Computed example of a mutant assay.
Amino acid sequence: MKTLVVAVAAALLFTGTAHAEPAKVAHTSAKFENYWAAAKAVTHDAAKVPVGAKVTVVGVPTVSGGTTVLLVLKGLLPNRAYGAHVHVKKCGALPADSGPHFQNVPDPVQPSVDPAYANARNEIWLDVHTDDRGFALTESTVDWQFTERHAQSVVLHNEHTHTRPGEAGTAGPRLACVNVDF
């Protein structure tokens, strides 16, 4: 699977005309574990994201100036919805350590729950529903790239992302986090 994901990322990056200074390809593959300083992927709720479950994230800048992010999960609870978003900070010992969602155009009011900012065009949303074996695959493409500002993680949440005013972008408690150097 890792070879396939890297091959897809390379194909997306090198198809067409190259940019003068394109954003970089980001890739992390890891197993979720309890927090320790060098952990790549951390579970904050092992009952919902078991220790040993696997995660792969690939972020690829597209030649049209966008970004595609692929999320692959194995070993999660079967037949279950999870929300997932790109966050601004690295994973930490506490769920909140990963900071807020990365927004291309930052909402001046934090936490952001305004649908004008907290939406799938301004943030990267990767909601999934696992199959009967706990496997899920999703991708999201936005029309912007990580340039001078970079995100540092993908966080799994307890439920799919809400879109109504006053709760836009929320998806329940943070269950797990994976470090990704976007």
Rank of each mutant, 00 (worst) to 15 (best):
residue 60 V to S: 06
residue 6 V to R: 14
residue 103 Q to Y: 06
residue 23 A to G: 15
residue 72 V to E: 03
residue 87 H to Y: 05
residue 153 S to T: 10
residue 32 F to I: 13
residue 124 I to N: 01
residue 110 Q to C: 01
residue 7 A to H: 11
residue 165 P to K: 08
residue 88 V to T: 10
residue 155 V to N: 10
residue 162 H to E: 10
residue 68 T to Q: 12
residue 144 W to K: 01
residue 121 R to L: 11
residue 29 S to Y: 09
residue 171 A to W: 06
residue 76 L to F: 14
residue 135 F to V: 14
residue 155 V to M: 13
residue 56 T to D: 07
residue 5 V to A: 13
residue 45 D to T: 13
residue 133 R to F: 10
residue 90 K to P: 00
residue 146 F to Y: 15
residue 106 P to C: 01
residue 99 G to T: 11
residue 143 D to P: 08
residue 97 D to Y: 12
residue 40 K to F: 12
residue 95 P to R: 13
residue 78 P to Q: 08
residue 116 A to H: 07
residue 138 T to N: 13
residue 177 C to G: 06
residue 153 S to R: 09
residue 2 K to T: 11
residue 41 A to D: 08
residue 6 V to Y: 05
residue 74 K to D: 15
residue 16 G to V: 09
residue 163 T to W: 01
residue 87 H to N: 09
residue 92 G to R: 06
residue 175 L to T: 05
residue 17 T to R: 10
residue 11 A to F: 10
residue 61 P to Q: 07
residue 36 W to I: 13
residue 114 D to L: 02
residue 168 A to M: 07
residue 9 A to T: 02
residue 18 A to D: 09
residue 66 G to M: 07
residue 59 G to P: 02
residue 4 L to N: 12
residue 33 E to L: 08
residue 121 R to W: 03
residue 132 D to N: 07
residue 13 L to Y: 10
residue 118 A to M: 11
residue 119 N to K: 00
residue 2 K to Y: 01
residue 62 T to P: 01
residue 169 G to P: 03
residue 137 L to K: 06
residue 4 L to Q: 14
residue 42 V to Y: 09
residue 80 R to Y: 05
residue 24 K to Y: 05
residue 129 H to P: 00
residue 77 L to D: 02
residue 166 G to K: 08
residue 133 R to D: 10
residue 153 S to P: 05
residue 53 A to H: 06
residue 123 E to A: 06
residue 88 V to Y: 05
